[in-house]
Nucleic acid binder design. Structure first.
Length: 888
RNA sequence: GGGCGGCUAGCUCAGCUGGUUAGAGCACCUCGUUUACACCGAGGGGGUCGGGGGUUCGAAUCCCUCGCCGCCCA
């Protein structure tokens, strides 16, 4: 006999280990099996599993388990991302805490060695946490973005793009993070709205004829101004265009230029132009050939281009000093409060500077074109589809992608420079040297580029680099393009778009046929989970408390498309209870001798009850299959929940008891076999979502009756495929009548406070012949579930019996001695009122000639039937009400 | 400023290719230890589907508009 409850704590690790050891996570070898592949969104190697990972990976696992059970060669390829900035940050912090020398003191080689050391020790954390969730990844194929194969792919891609002139070096303004002293891409910049000020400064005209007012939120940049711009049509300034102002503090004359950029409606209409420290001003400067004066260093301190008293000052200290000086000079005209957006580094959190440096860029606009077309043509589809709009929007306005980072942890850029600065971009240093020798005519020392690549550069290759590209491997041929990518919308730009661009460019094929965008997990109040808010829910704690299956079911059930998921413990607890419900059902079946019968065929069962459950099981299997095939995770889990709890447990198992304990041996045997069959189907259907508990039940019921055709793990058993021929509408109708009669009867009993221990007869007053037959044949079942002594057919309901109407049949309970007339009157009055409301509504519809004329015939007919039924029922209950009045 | 999503029972959500009496879980109230399950069973109360307008025989569902709330991009 099964234990009373399932114990996830002991069973989950045991089952996972057994699965992993069996090799069942790897795709089957069968060359005829259709390949189905998913690559994991590689979590940062520094990461630990948060609830978002739990959701994302649960859905991937549900899908991969489903397709594996459908007989496909299912590959879920796992791995981690080296996460340049994040990892460097973590290790630097740890070194500092341990009192080590700083990264700079240590030097590049030693520091990078330390990071690898850290990775070897702590880098496996998240991967092991995925195991606790039940993730059936093929760990034998696990990859890391910095491992050798992937690094080869990165170099190959970089060199190829360079030679195709799609990667180039350029000097322009980048987003500079002064905390990490590196460039970052546009996407890594977070625009934050903050309170600030507009400082209105007066710049005196060079000829002494007056002044011009400019306003800025960043006073310190005035030290690098090289012009003042006004709109050419702004009549206030027509006269001064071409003149100069003398820049205060710096004491340098700068021109007043005419440009479309200033908005005459805003402020004074005149704008200071600082090409080196503002993206818009940089463009203006280009148009007018203005000098570009950079006054900052890598740490955003003022450099030697600033007046001597400013040199070495932090940018914010310099701001303060500039304002003070303007005030002292009498040139500060106004200080206006404002709210404006300020760019911050998403990792460092510090204000990012537009900063003029040499960086490597990818011509993303060229790569984007085929990536846009592929989605337009449906080669890759987004689910839900509306995310395509987001994708298109960004891709159609894509900017050059800055891919170099001034970090040490990452793929070092394969560019080597000669003494004259000429770059040799090759896959190996040896090849670069060879090229250099050819170029210079003699062996020449080269110096490799110090920078590394943006982490997303290598992640963008993930779907094919992990499969062995650029080698022509079997895996690549078999599993690329991958089938489905499951990820969050927050990385559509960072990752999905880049994979599309690089995948198409280097393999000629889309990297995945379908992208499922999963929701964002929030706390129970809808706030984004964050450490600082202290509202993070640790998935591992949930696994500890409720088991992985409960968490998985919760996440699956709540993964409605494009929605936030507000997660609460209560919900997880509810699904833990569902697991227990499932666990205990086979105990009931065992008690009653249910066991698999050799050669059982669900098509041949005779008893309506069994025909009904076979049909319902079939419907469920079909609907779950369709849902999962289309990433309808929520639908699939809801269907399973309802079927298992509300049909199988609530009705079938209860209905089966009289048959299982009755005298009809044939019916008994059939029911025992059907129950066992249905249970096995249920375990299979539920397995992708709740793998642990179903696998354990599968094992524990293995020797119940005839051996299963399938040996081994449930994980690799075949997902049910059941034909609609198994659905029998006649059986459905019979069971529906029984359910309705019992439900109504119970309702009557409880509303009238008939004691649970009382066992009156159920009187059948008026029925069709078919209904009469069903009620006769199932009398023991009705008696048991409605707690009545017998089912008796009578001509008229006796005085004081309580009538109720079910599907046109009139039934009654002779419980006069228990009831309170007032309660019964109230019940009948309520019923009659409800029917009257329905009648009024339906009759109204039918009285409308337009409705009868225009609505489809079946809808009209349905309404006619409803009206007739309701009127009949109402008449019967009104009769009862009248008799009650007479009796009282 | 542009775009997307949401607003349905006290809470969290489903329903939204228009057509039974708008559903579920949790919470709440009542009853119940009947041979799987109290992590349970049975019954019940609770919603003018954000406001307004329109299309239609018929709107939670389609269209317009307004109002909040959230997110993304500039």
């Amino acid at each position: 006999m099964l234990d009373k409850t399932f114990d996830p704590k002991t069973a989950e690790p045991r089952l996972y280990e057994a699965w992993e050891r069996s090799g069942g996570f790897a795709p089957v070898d069968d060359p005829n099996a259709e390949p189905f592949s998913i690559v994991i969104p590689p979590p940062n190697v520094t990461g630990s599993l948060h609830i978002g990972h739990a959701l994302n990976n649960t859905l991937q696992d549900v899908l991969i388990r489903f397709e594996r059970m459908r007989g496909k060669a299912a590959l879920w390829l796992p791995g981690t991302d080296h996460a340049g900035i994040a990892t460097q940050m973590v290790v630097e912090r740890q070194l500092a805490e341990a009192g080590n020398r700083s990264r700079r003191d240590m030097g590049r080689e030693e520091f990078v060695a330390k990071v690898w050391e850290w990775k070897a020790k702590s880098g496996g954390t998240i991967v092991n946490q995925l195991r606790r969730l039940g993730a059936s990844c093929d760990w034998s194929r696990e990859r890391f973005t910095l491992d050798e194969g992937l690094s080869n792919a990165v170099r190959k891609v970089f060199v190829t793009l360079y030679k195709q002139k799609l990667i180039y070096r350029d000097k322009r303004l980048v987003n500079w993070d002064p905390h990490f002293q590196t460039a970052i891409s546009d996407l890594e910049v977070e625009q934050r709205e903050v309170d600030g000020h507009y400082w209105h400064f007066a710049y005196p005209l060079e000829d002494g004829s007056g002044e011009i007012i400019v306003a800025t939120t960043r006073p310190e940049t005035m030290l690098a101004d090289t012009a003042v711009a006004v709109h050419p049509k702004d009549q206030r300034y027509t006269a001064v265009i071409g003149k100069a102002v003398r820049l205060p503090i710096v004491n340098r004359p700068i021109p007043i230029i005419a440009d479309e950029y200033p908005d005459p409606e805003k402020g004074s209409g005149a704008v200071k132009i600082t090409p080196a420290h503002d993206f818009n001003d940089f463009q203006v400067g280009k148009r007018h050939n203005l000098p570009v004066i950079n006054i900052l260093d890598d740490f955003a301190r003022l450099n030697d281009n600033a007046p001597p008293e400013y040199r070495g000052l932090d940018r914010f200290a310099a701001r303060k000093k500039v304002i003070e000086q303007f005030e002292a000079l009498g040139l500060l005209r106004e200080v206006e409060k404002t709210r404006h957006t300020v760019p911050h580094g998403d990792r460092s959190g510090v204000v990012v500077e537009p900063y003029l440096t040499d960086q490597w860029y990818v011509a993303a606009d060229v790569l984007a074109k085929p990536a846009i077309e592929a989605v337009e043509q449906g080669k890759t589809v987004f689910v839900p589809k509306n995310w395509e709009k987001t994708y298109f929007e960004w891709m159609r306005n894509i900017q050059p992608w800055c891919v170099s980072r001034q970090l040490w942890w990452g793929h070092r850029i394969p560019a080597w420079y000669g003494p004259d600065g000429k770059a040799f971009v090759e896959e190996t240093e040896a090849e670069a040297k060879r090229q250099a020798e050819e170029h210079y005519g003699r062996p020449t020392d080269l110096k490799q580029d110090e920078d590394v690549l943006d982490t997303w550069f290598s992640s963008g290759l993930w779907p094919f680099s992990t499969l062995g590209w650029p080698e022509k491997t079997d895996d690549l041929a078999r599993f690329y393009p991958t089938h489905t990518l499951i990820t969050g919308f927050d990385i559509i730009f960072f990752w999905v778009a880049r994979m599309m661009m690089q995948g198409l460019h280097f393999t000629g094929e889309v990297p995945f046929k379908r992208v499922f965008i999963n929701a964002l997990v929030r706390d129970a109040t809808g706030a984004k989970m964050s450490k600082s808010k202290g509202n993070v829910m640790d998935p591992l704690e949930m696994v500890d408390d409720y088991g992985a299956d409960a968490l998985r079911f919760t996440l699956t059930a709540m993964s409605g498309q494009a929605r936030d998921i507000k997660l609460s413990r209560q919900r997880i607890e509810g699904y833990r209870n569902f697991g227990t419900k499932l666990w205990t059902a086979p105990r009931s079946c065992q008690i009653n001798g249910c066991a698999r019968a050799a050669g059982f065929d669900p098509a041949t069962v005779k008893a309506p009850l069994n025909r009904w459950i076979v049909g319902e099981t079939t419907r469920t299997a079909q609907s779950v299959t369709a849902a999962l095939a289309g990433c309808g995770f929520g639908d699939a889990s809801e269907t399973l929940y309802r079927f298992i709890w509300n049909q199988f447990c609530d009705w079938y198992v209860e209905f089966a008891k009289p048959l299982l304990t009755g005298a009809d041996e044939a019916a008994k045997a059939e029911t025992q076999a059907t129950t066992a069959w249905a249970l096995d189907v249920i375990l299979k259907l539920l397995h992708p979502v709740m793998p642990f508990i179903t696998e354990e039940l599968w094992a524990q019921t293995a020797d119940l009756g005839a051996p299963r055709a399938e040996t081994g793990f449930l994980m690799t058993a075949r997902f049910p495929e059941l034909s609609s021929d198994l659905i029998d509408p006649a059986a459905d109708a019979e069971i529906a009548l029984l359910i309705a009669a019992i439900t109504e009867g119970r309702s009557v009993r409880q509303e009238l406070n008939v004691p649970a221990s009382a066992q009156p007869a159920l009187l059948v007053v008026e029925t069709s012949d078919a209904q009469r037959r069903v009620l006769t044949e199932n009398a023991p079942l009705v008696a048991r579930l409605l707690r009545v002594s017998e089912v008796r057919f009578v001509e008229v309901a006796p005085e004081g019996s309580i009538p109720f109407v079910v599907e046109g049949a009139t039934l009654a309970l002779p419980v006069a001695e228990f009831i309170d007339i007032a309660a019964e009157r109230a019940r009948l009055t309520k019923e009659v009122a409800s029917l009257a409301g329905d009648i009024a509504k339906t009759a109204g519809k039918l009285a409308n000639p337009d409705f009868v004329a225009r609505a489809p015939e079946e809808v009209v007919e349905e309404n006619r039937e409803r009206l007739a039924d309701a009127e009949a029922a109402k008449a019967k209950l009104e009769g009862a009400l009248a008799r009650l009045g007479a009796a009282a």
